[in-house]
Amino acid sequence: MQTFFQQVINGLSLGSIYALLALGYTMVYGIIKLINFAHGDIYMIGAFWGYYVINQYHVDFGVALVSAMAVSAILGMVIEYLAYRPLRHSPRITALITAIGVSYFLENGMSFLFGANTRNFPQVIGQARYTFFGVTITNIQLLIVAVALVLMVGLQLIVQHTRMGTAMRAVAVDQEAAELVGIDPNHIISFTFGLGSALAGAAGVLIGLYYNSIDPLMGMVPGIKAFVAAVVGGIGSIPGAAIGGFLIGLLETFVQAIGLSAYKDAAVYIVLIIILIVLPAGLLGKNVKEKV
C-alpha cells in the first residue's frame, strides 16, 4: 500500500508535466487541427531558457519560470506566424510536415549552437523530503503538481471567462462564423499558440528541476507522449488533456514499478489503442458523426 501511494505521488508529478504539454497540443489541435510536432521542442527551449537565466543571472525559481513562459509564448507565436500561417489553407498533412520541419530545426539548431551534450539543471531550490506514513514526497514534486494545477485552473479561467477565451472557443467551433461576428482568427490562433507554448515552457523548467538534466532532444519523447495523452483525453478538450496527462503519467510509473519498465512505452500505446477503439474520440472528446 505504501509503494502504491509512493507511485501515485511519482505518477502525479510526471503526469503534471504531460498534462501541461498536452494542454498545448489540445488547444492548437482544437483550433487549427494541426498536430504541432514542434510543441515538445518548445518545452525544451523553456528548459534551456531556465538553465540560462539561472546560471547567468542567478535569478530565483519564480523569475526563471515566468520568464521561460514568456519566452516560450513569444517563440510559439513567431513559429505560428512564420511557418504555419502561410499554410492555413493548405492540406493539413502539409502543415504537419512543416511542424516536423520546425521540430527538427529547433532540435538541431540548439545542438548546433550550444552542443548536443546533456547538462545539469541548476538546483535553485534545495531539495527537501517529507515523509508521511512511509510515503516520501519531495518539495519539488509538490511544487510541480502545485504549479501545474495553478496553471491549469488559470487556463480554464482564461478559456471560459475572458473575451479572448470566448473568441478561442468560437474559432475552434467555426472559424468562418467567428470571422463574421468580428473575431480575427489570426489573432486568436496566435494567442492560442502563445498560451499553449507558455505552458510548455513552464513544463520545461519544472522537468529540469525534477530530473536535473536537460538536452536538445529532451522534447521528442515527452512531446509524443503528451500528444498521446491529449488524444486519450479527447483532443480539443482542455479537461480531457489534463486527465489524459495524469493518466499517462500514472500508467508509466506503475508499469515501471511492477518491473516492466522495458514495456512502459508499449503499455502507453496499448492503452491508447484500446481507448480509441472503444471511444474513437477519446475520453472526453465529442464523436461527431458525418451528416448524410
Partner: peptide
C-alpha cells in the same frame, strides 16, 4: 557536419510553405 540537419529542416519548411501540395 552539425549544420546538416538545420539546413535540411529549413529546406523542408521552405518547400512545404512554397509548394504546399508537394
Amino acid at each position: 557536419g552539425a549544420l546538416r540537419m538545420v539546413i535540411y529542416a529549413l529546406a523542408l519548411i521552405l518547400i512545404m510553405v512554397f509548394k504546399p501540395s508537394g
